Simulated scan of single mutants.
Amino acid sequence: MERNHQINPAIALACLIYLVSVNLTHAQIDTWTSEGWSTDFSKTSIDLSEIISGGPPRDGIPSIDNPTFSAADEITDIDGREPVIEFPIEGESRAYPLRVLIWHEIVNDTIDDIPVAVTYCPLCNAAIVFDRRLDAETLAFGTSGKLRHSDLIMYDRTTQSWWQQFSGDAIVGELTGSALKKLPSRIVSFEKFKQAHPKGQVLVPNDPNFRPYGNNPYQSYDTAERPFLFRGELPADIAAMAHVVVVDTGAEPIIVSLERVRQSGYEHDGYVVTYQDGVASALDSSSIQQGRDIGTVMVTKDGADVVHDLTFAFVAHVFYPDVMIVQ
């Protein structure tokens, strides 16, 4: 009796896809090694094929490592509606204008003896502040030139491990599995910051002519139909570029659309999300000060500020695919 030695087509296809994936990953690692990375690529928590080039090389978007500040009431070239990251929330805060961060993405700073990384990913509109301390070591971060899910991949200059900006997790390299602590911050208008902290320190460029500060190189990005350099699945029931609030609860996050908060606010399990108008989008007009008003939010629980991010729906969906976006 003859035996049927035909291979199941589904199994054959799966094997082929696996082999192609392995070859692509090896090719990626060879490319990254040739770029001068000493990262330990044998350690990773993700599929390396999800990482793509964002265009600029490592440090092509230069972090700010020696930040310079001026008092808010001495600054005349920032429009009152322009968005700034206010941090820390308590005490005498500092402001980090998105007109600067859109060109640098990372500021390595120290406040009250706490080393922090103030970060902004324009493609995700994600503004997040991290404690740079990990165990007994203080890390300094730069831009890798790589993206995952359209989000900035940072690297630390000690081990050259790669870190996902949106989550603060080390995803490739020696420190894979480590996570940075997020610190409460918020986006506010420059005018509101100046009113509350007239002598508050505001980040200014070390060289005002280094970039066209105040201009937005991502004109009309936040009204586009789909994100840039994104390969993942888009949300089915909300526009990919709709603004949403992601609230860090320490467990499963709360995700609610900005439009819902704008219309009626939002409360859940003691978390209170409120809307404030008067803040321009950094990703709308070619000039940030002319960006349409998208407003901002405040998130508290028991009166204390809570870590949150005002980002895009596609970002929330790809990083938290099983969490419903409240609309």
Rank of each mutant, 00 (worst) to 15 (best):
L183R: 13
V299F: 12
L310N: 11
R231F: 13
M241F: 06
A239L: 07
L183H: 12
G278A: 13
V246Q: 05
Q276L: 03
Y275T: 08
A280V: 02
S285Y: 02
N206R: 02
S285R: 13
A224C: 02
G291K: 02
V256S: 01
Q195N: 09
A251F: 09
A240R: 00
A224V: 00
S185H: 06
T274E: 11
N215L: 08
K301D: 08
A236H: 09
N215F: 01
Q290Y: 06
G250K: 14
V247F: 12
V279P: 09
V297N: 08
Q289T: 05
T249S: 11
D293E: 11
K199T: 14
Y271S: 12
S220N: 14
E259M: 05
M298Y: 00
D302Q: 13
A236N: 12
S257T: 12
L258W: 06
V202H: 02
L310M: 13
Q290A: 06
V246W: 04
V261S: 09
L310I: 14
V244E: 10
G295N: 03
Q219Y: 05
R260C: 10
S264N: 13
A196C: 01
I255C: 09
H243S: 14
D207L: 04
A280W: 00
R186W: 04
P198T: 05
A282I: 05
P212N: 04
D305A: 15
E225A: 12
Y221F: 05
D277A: 10
V188F: 02
G295D: 10
N209Q: 15
S185V: 13
P205M: 08
P208A: 13
D309C: 15
S185E: 06
L258G: 01
Y266N: 02
Q195D: 10
F230N: 02
Y266S: 09
F228D: 03
F210W: 07
K194G: 00
V246F: 08
K192D: 14
A242W: 08
V272H: 14
I254V: 15
I238F: 00
S286K: 11
V307W: 12
T274V: 04
G278P: 07
Y275A: 10
S285K: 11
G232S: 11
D222Y: 01
G303D: 13
A282M: 03
I255Q: 10
I294V: 15
P217Y: 04
Y275C: 06
S281L: 05
H197Y: 14
E267C: 12
S189R: 09
V307K: 08
H243L: 10
G232F: 00
G232K: 05
N209E: 15
M241A: 10
T300M: 08
V306L: 01
T300K: 07
Q263I: 03
G214N: 01
V256N: 04
A196M: 03
G214M: 03
F193Q: 01
R231E: 15
P253C: 14
Q290L: 02
H197I: 00
P227E: 03
P227A: 11
D248R: 09
P198K: 01
Y266F: 15
Q290I: 02
G303A: 11
